[in-house]
Amino acid sequence: MRVRIGRLLAAFFFLLAPPIAHSETSAKAEPCFACHGPNGNSAVPQFPSLAGQTARYIYLQLRDFQEGRRNDPVMQPLAKALSRDDMLELAAFFAAQKLQPNSFKADPERAARGKAKADETLCTMCHLGNFAGQNEIPRVAGQQYDYVVKQLRDFKSRTRTNDAGNMTSVARTLSDRDIEDLAHYTASLF
């Protein structure tokens, strides 16, 4: 854990440091790899994978962190140091990376219940089939289990409210078991 915090702090200071000219966008993205994994493929359950995420979603989340509509003690200061062009570049970079399978072992029975709940809740009307995502609606397929559970709980408890009301409204109807089932299902999608 100490190592991870050290890397986080390194990333933090890297971004606060005076701008360094980079010819490649990937150089700008490298500090993000500390938590979000190589090319945005997270190996840490609490941090989301960014690889293959929609560019529009990544950009809007960075902007919400920067402007205080989404709260996270690590991401907010990091986002504050980014310019609009930085955010657009990072978003485009991660959107273009290939998402690798995550290591979470989804329980097939729970994943099946999660799918039924997803069908009932009409998740794919916005997230599209197999939770592929579109524009400002994120891809959730193959996302980290712990991260998805936390986001749904945060929407339900309204500790995350930067969704313009869509997810807080949906999450109101989900039980804790529903949330876990859904996360089993989305983690199993690829």
């Binding site: 809007l60 313009a164 869509n166 807080t168």
Partner: peptide, 18 residues
């Protein structure tokens, strides 16, 4: 017509319900 209390989301779609 459905209402949902929601603050300004920063240029994202803001229906305040559905």
């Amino acid at each position: 017509y459905h209402v949902e209390q929601v603050n300004y989301p920063g240029g994202k779609l803001w229906l305040g319900g559905a």
